[in-house]
Amino acid sequence: MVLVIANTTRRLDTRYVEAALTLGANRLRLLWQVVVPGILPDLYKDLRILLGWAWTYLIVAELIGTSSGITWFITQQARYKNFDMVFAALIILGLIGLLSDLLLERMGRRLFPWQEKRLGGS
């Protein structure tokens, strides 16, 4: 996760930093008023992706470990060869993942309204 954040920070357009410097910004102002707000949207996207990984790890862990929950249900149903139930459960898992990401994306748009491109005139 540290790598991801470091990379996102590195990718911040240097022009923002340079513009801020020419406007008299010192190190502290650069950090808090330029770098942090600058990387926030990309950081948020990174977190959404990381959430996907976490979700995957969770399912894998459950498959190995538990005796309750959806993954347990899947292994049980597979054992009884009720593959239609297996697929139903898989679809539910997928839907949960998709919906949570959609929700985060919607939230992201509210958090970062400046990302929308709309022409106002010329």
């Binding site: 357009d13 923002y16 340079e18 513009a19 801020a20 406007l23 990302q115």
Partner: peptide, 13 residues
Amino acid sequence: RGMVFQQFSLFPW
């Protein structure tokens, strides 16, 4: 010394 770049230097946030 004020500077104007070619593009994309405004703070989008």
